[in-house]
Write a protein that binds this DNA or RNA. Structure first.
Length: 291
DNA sequence: TGCCAGGGTCTTT
DNA sequence: AAAGACCATGGC
């Protein structure tokens, strides 16, 4: 099936970004991206590749336990953020001194979202303060520990474990994966919240006010402003969410503004205030000015 | 080798 | 309110 984006979309840019990540929950190879997922309790393996028409992707289902095609379609729309009005962002960005140059070189670049809430929260905790390479290693160890995968053509396509399974995983097992005690505790809290419903995606989606959702997320021990906004941006699609304090964003602003030192919190706040409702995509593009 | 990493909490000024 | 200690370990 083919899916067209709302406005410009460059599959190659999405592919290149995803291929350079070391994410165990999809496989990027030879221009195609394969992913296994459990959707409404049923397993499915599908493949995304460049669409035959402009600004589109092609989706092929490789293995399916009965997930409706429309469900897979909606998943891919969310994953590649194909509904976002990218032209509206560009109209704003072209008039911005920082964003103007970078949006020209990345025309059609969209966010790769994290559809699953447990995965989004897990990443927002694992990604705290450590280098990305190591964070991906930790994620891989945790995911592979549970062993859930779909085998296809001699390869394993790993599935995200359920919150209940993560909740049941003891701290010592996580420590043996080199996840710190604190992060193990935070991950348990997140899994518990999803199980209880107060951190479920459906619950937070109903909380359509940004300030309320932010306050709710940061009330969880271990979820600070950076982690909360990471989830608001990539899983809940709040377009004004910006991970304040993000190291990459600091470095990017330092570069665009030609600063001697990294900008402080007030400086960053002033910049992100200018972005307003375009903050999430402004951040996405700013990350790319570092190369 | 030392500094930095897509931070957060808790304690102390 | 702001600054410092501590966590914890890989990557470059």
């Amino acid at each position: 099936m083919m899916i067209r984006a709302n406005g410009p979309f460059d599959y190659g840019l999405a592919y290149d970004f995803m291929a350079q990540q070391d994410d165990c929950l999809y496989r990027a190879q030879a221009g195609t991206i394969r992913k296994a997922a459990v959707l409404d309790g049923l397993r499915v393996l599908f493949e995304v590749s460049e669409g035959s028409e402009a600004n589109s992707v092609e989706v092929a289902i490789l293995m399916n336990e009965g997930v409706p095609e429309s469900t897979v379609r909606n998943y891919v729309i969310e994953w590649f953020d194909l509904e976002y009005d990218l032209d509206a962002f560009y109209r704003f960005a072209r008039q911005d001194g920082r964003l103007g140059p970078v949006v020209e070189t990345l025309y059609g670049y969209r966010m790769t979202c994290t559809v699953d809430m447990m995965e989004g929260l897990l990443w927002s905790v694992l990604g705290q303060q450590i280098n990305m390479r190591f964070a991906f290693t930790l994620k891989r160890r945790l995911v592979e520990h549970f062993g859930h995968h779909i085998a296809f053509e001699g390869e394993r396509y790993w599935l995200m474990p359920e919150p209940a399974e993560i909740l049941a995983l003891d701290t010592e097992s996580m420590r043996s994966m080199q996840i710190s005690y604190r992060k193990a505790e935070y991950i348990h809290r997140c899994a518990d919240g999803i199980e209880a419903g107060t951190l479920s995606k459906a619950f937070l989606e109903r909380m359509d006010d940004y300030e309320s959702a932010l306050a709710h997320l940061t009330s969880i021990k271990g979820i600070g402003p950076w982690s909360a906004n990471s989830v608001l941006m990539r899983t809940l699609k709040f377009r004004n969410a910006v991970p304040i304090g993000d190291a990459g964003l600091k470095n990017a602003i330092r570069m665009t503004d030609n600063l001697e030192e990294k900008p402080d919190r007030a400086y960053i706040q002033a910049v992100t205030d200018e972005w307003g409702g375009h903050g999430a995509y402004a951040t996405l593009y700013m990350w790319r000015v570092l190369g």
